[in-house]
Design a protein around this nucleic acid. Structure first.
Lengths: 345, 345
DNA sequence: CTGAAAGCGCTTACAG
DNA sequence: CTGAAAGCGCTTACAG
């Protein structure tokens, strides 16, 4: 067999010989420098992965510590984020992997993407999970070059080939929610949207549009609002909708927070839900269950998304080939008390 | 002054020059080899200590590998836990310390307290923060013996001398909430309690009792219920209270979740809040603000509690003496829409 | 983009 | 015991 595997000494020189390149070239690959041809890089990376090369620093670290995954949230401020986090923690606990958590919005990093990537590699992270996080292509690229598996859950920007992206079937979920309202007899259905540029919000909106089209209901632009994923946005949006001369009889909200805000505003204006107005949310967090009336919503498998993210890291660590760079887990419409047929004329 | 301290480069060569020996000799001292004269050794050690020499491995660890604090939650399932976590993350980010997060309820550890403590020390944690976590005295003792600073936030069991304990002024908060209701004219005030054995719940209950006593209102045992900190508990408790012949006109709930559950049940039974029933919560999470009616509550400085926990770790790392092993941060009554004078007879 | 060459910081083997 | 010399593993600067 090959020289490298026979003799136990794993040095850059051995890797270089095996890969048919020079020692400096291997060094560059390991340090994520960009002046290496893609083909050369992948050949060297393959040898590194196969032989399980560890830098002296990593070797020493492996003696005591466990593997750790870096989890980065944009912000940690909703039931959504906790549920995903619980899924990650559960899968990490089962695999005996540490979770190092950080939040970018509250504590902005002074480091460049390149420095952050280097730090994370030096600290021996086995992978990286970003949750609803805005990341630069440069950042993903830095992890990719160093061979750190990266998974993004519900990315704010469109998915990149450099990371695995996990989400739910937002389009299908949006379609289901809207179809449910159509089936109840609603024709005047509003979409109380989230942040305009965000992928998953776009997908939900297009699911809504698709359902309307399938139901032969004309789209009314006044019924389509943009906002944020916070409950204030539901309050504000609801105010606008209720000022319209031709009010909608149903509202599909971009997520549960927005739906709960809409519910609160309807209540303040003494509009009965579901008798006078139906409301559907998205997410299926515990809050949707506890509200009065209990919220009809499109449940995402949030914990499962967290678990899946960690499992993807594990599989990439083992060098398995992934069938797909983008995974969508199924949503499910949960009908509760906030939806009913529209009021008679 | 000396050469070493002027130039920032701390290498074996610099140490050797400073100590007036050769590089190999310094190397031997650092590696604990015994073929060095005692006098030479101590001279070299003195320079090493004075200059704070670190091996390349240590240097790199210091540059990139940061200190880490272990944060252990009992469970992560409420706005309360997120807010505390955000405080910890913020202070940790500011101090450039990593947060390694784990949850015990969902992922029970197979390790003994002793093994867990050993692992945490081996992994070089600079401290340990436990949040509303049940911990054994053995566990705290294991950390204590190894000199790992430990802070417990809202401990489930009574505080131990082995750890610093952080909480809010639960007793005073309970008293404030109840006094507010008394001031509004209520005399029939229920306490919708949390889990019976838990410290902070006990303190809130006793604050409630103290306020009643101060207001010359007799305690009615039928008005004091025990439950959990979850909203179902508020629903169940409210059902019981509303079945009483002599219903209370006001409810002080052990926390916001319970209060929200009470609000939901009142609504289901068409009881108007605050016209027919006043409700006060405890915690002051964002959920209390967003509910309809907005909840009057005793706000805890949850983020500040998280920040304080991390700051205590830092101070103990620096070897500072602590003035106190138990800290209570001030609560504040926030009056919103869910409280009003009792209905007339 | 690649790698020969120089260099860095530390360790080891060994002559004195 | 000490340190000059050789060596190790990695990185850096730069010529091609």
């Amino acid at each position: 067999m090959t020289t490298v595997e026979q003799q136990g000494k794993l040095t850059l020189a051995a890797i270089a010989q095996e890969a048919g390149v020079s020692v400096p070239t291997v060094s560059k690959v390991i340090n994520g420098r960009d002046d290496v041809a893609a083909e050369t890089r992948s050949r060297v990376m393959a040898v590194l992965a196969r032989t399980g090369y560890k830098s002296p620093v990593q070797q020493r670290r492996n003696l005591t510590g466990r593997q750790a995954v870096e989890v980065v949230y944009d912000s940690l401020d909703s039931a959504y984020s906790i549920e995903v986090l619980n899924g990650i923690l559960e899968a990490a606990g089962a695999a005996d992997i540490e979770v190092v958590l950080s939040v970018t919005k509250r504590v902005p990093s002074r480091l460049t993407p390149e420095q952050r990537a280097r730090r994370i590699v030096d600290e021996g992270r086995c992978g990286m999970i970003m949750v609803t996080s805005a990341f630069s292509e440069a950042q993903l690229d830095a992890f990719h070059r160093r061979g750190v598996p990266t998974v993004v859950i519900d990315p704010l920007n469109p998915p990149s080939g450099k990371a695995v992206s996990i989400g739910a079937t937002n389009w299908a979920g949006g379609k289901d929610a809207t179809s449910h309202l159509l089936d109840l007899g609603h024709r005047k259905i509003a979409y109380l949207g989230g942040p305009e540029g965000v992928e998953c919000n776009q997908a939900r909106l297009h699911g809504y549009l698709a359902a309307l089209r399938a139901g032969n209901v004309a789209v009314d632009d006044r019924y389509i609002l943009q906002g944020s994923f916070k409950s204030e946005s539901g309050v504000e949006g609801m105010k606008k909708l209720l000022q319209l001369k031709d009010r909608p009889t149903a509202v599909f909200a971009a997520n549960d927070n927005v739906a709960l805000g809409a519910l609160a505003e309807a209540r303040r204006q003494n509009i009965l839900v579901p008798e006078e107005l139906s409301v559907v949310g998205f997410d299926g967090t515990y809050q949707s269950e506890e509200s009065v009336p209990a919220l009809t919503t499109v449940a995402q498998p949030l914990q499962e998304m967290g678990r899946a993210a960690l499992r993807f890291i594990l599989r990439q660590m083992r060098g398995e080939l992934l069938d797909s760079r983008r995974v969508e887990l199924a949503t499910q419409l949960v009908v509760r008390e906030s939806t009913a047929p529209p009021p008679g004329p």
